[in-house]
Design a protein around this nucleic acid. Sequence first.
DNA 1: TTTGGTTGTTTAAACGTTTAAGTATAAATT
DNA 2: AATTTATACTTAAACGTTTAAACAACCAAA
Lengths: 338, 338
Amino acid sequence: MNKKTSLKDIAQHLGVSTALVSYVINHKEKEARVGPEMVKKIRKAVIDLNYQPNLIAKSLKSGKTKTIGLIVADISNPFFSTIARIIEDEARKQGYVVIFGSSDESAEKSQSLISVYLNRQVDAFIIAPAENTEDQILGLHKAGIPVVLIDRYFPEVPSDCVMINNAAISEAAVQYLIDKKRSKIAMLTYKTKLAHIEARKNGYKNALKSNGIKFDRKMIREASYQDIENDVTTQLKDLFGGPQKVDAIFFATNSLAVYGLKVINQLGIKVPQQLAIVSFDQSEAFDFFYAPLSYVSQCLENVGKNAVKLLVERLEQKVKPKQYATVVVEAKLVIRES
Amino acid sequence: MNKKTSLKDIAQHLGVSTALVSYVINHKEKEARVGPEMVKKIRKAVIDLNYQPNLIAKSLKSGKTKTIGLIVADISNPFFSTIARIIEDEARKQGYVVIFGSSDESAEKSQSLISVYLNRQVDAFIIAPAENTEDQILGLHKAGIPVVLIDRYFPEVPSDCVMINNAAISEAAVQYLIDKKRSKIAMLTYKTKLAHIEARKNGYKNALKSNGIKFDRKMIREASYQDIENDVTTQLKDLFGGPQKVDAIFFATNSLAVYGLKVINQLGIKVPQQLAIVSFDQSEAFDFFYAPLSYVSQCLENVGKNAVKLLVERLEQKVKPKQYATVVVEAKLVIRES
DNA sequence: TTTGGTTGTTTAAACGTTTAAGTATAAATT
DNA sequence: AATTTATACTTAAACGTTTAAACAACCAAA
């Protein structure tokens, strides 16, 4: 209840000006030539009165809030919450704090989050961009607000970003299935034009092509983000009920796999005898599936750390504007029993 | 790059005082008796110059940041990230933004997070408190900062909090095991004095007692948060390797269960034939264990929503100070095959 | 004709900081 | 002794808002 002590309180308490106190607190007593015993008095008062700086006032003055806005598709998805945790830790080490929001893959929600955060004067953004948000990213660039894209990226919008080798690792994953003598390989993916998903599809297609397997459109199935559970169910039932004899499936993300596995169980399909599986990303569920799933492992630690690193470099202007960096984190294939 | 427009810019552009502009923007044209065509001019300029209020300046003036500090044990734990997501959504609806931090169950980290957030003038906290942080909560109360505790609580520290019926539902869970003719029931829990865990232990003990089963200290095993994987492994190996013939186990949290299940698989123990299992909380892993796990389901939606509701009521002073509310969200037992 | 009310607008202080510039005194250099 | 320089501190403006109070011009009623 009792008001917090401000600089002014300390100044009054000692009968000096706030300037002096400010200098001492900011360790500028040298430059400002504050007398040594004055320094001591102020230091003591700071402790006695338990002074805590008001960062809002500082922000107003400096124009910097030391706050990063984090926008992902859904913070409750372990993929994003793991990244969030790493970003949080890294950011705090650098004196930043993170505010977060979930876009639910909606461009409008994304825009609204960006606006709110801009009004709150965040210094920078880390964004896993939703589809059709290119202009939002461009807008931030124009406004001179640092942004680092993670997970997804826009080939046409140069930007700092941290991505993985989507196409190559997808190709490797599918190649692994082929090496296991599978040739009727399906893929379950999202209905989206986002480049990281496109790259995964291309990896899939390339693997087929370079092994002389004809690509069948019916073997790529798509689910919408908004209605994932239903879509996965109908698509997979249709896929496995159809004329094609599917003997392997590649899941483009962990959520797709989790819902997909439920359908596969429901249909009584035996893994890996009848169906081999590789999924993107990790999930606790994969470990407990009766045939522990093989998956593409992204090092989220690297993703998060690099994102914060890029951002801080940008914020401290160690990098030239308009010169964007792309960090590629190498994903790797973890082979298990599926 | 081009500076953002401020109130002053608009005022200058129109050759009027900032006061006028402020009144119009805040819809106080009536009270301030601003002339009708002036209102129009200002409205137009606001749009033409794309004015966006600086919330930092507003905060400095008002002393309110419309920001909630969220502190949980680990945001990457799905239990907490799910709650975080709900809190985020609810808070935004009320015009609040959430900054988050993970305490890793450490009182020091928790204190440091609280300090950082206080310096940033957050309006209120939602905290899943770590052990030995009673004084931190009391400190916030003394400072008049609203706090809502979630998941955990301190019986000796009255505070707004949202909790579940830990003891009762634990008793019900163990009773279920007993009804299934199990009598050698073990429990795996955290090494902590936190009341919610104590309550779960008491529920376990009560169920045994009311069924005339003698409580055996050796049947309660504890793991430390810091070294959970190792501890779970050694404790369970010791438990199942010992003289007691364990025929059921009750896990006090989802993480304990996830690590525990791995050990159980490793030891080749058959569920539910040799061992019946009930766990607290949910996990994707539970669905894919070969015998889908029975568990205690907490409605996290209710937890999150109630937490924000309590907080907002407190912030808007609809509630008397020193009169704290406890919301109990009823958990329920979900029976499956384990 | 004073008094009072209405209407429309400005002034200025305040929130808690930072910091360039100013002032006053003492010490050092001519 | 006069000037410079160093030392120790204060002043005041600024960041972008809000808002009570003041002001000016007009109109109406006594």
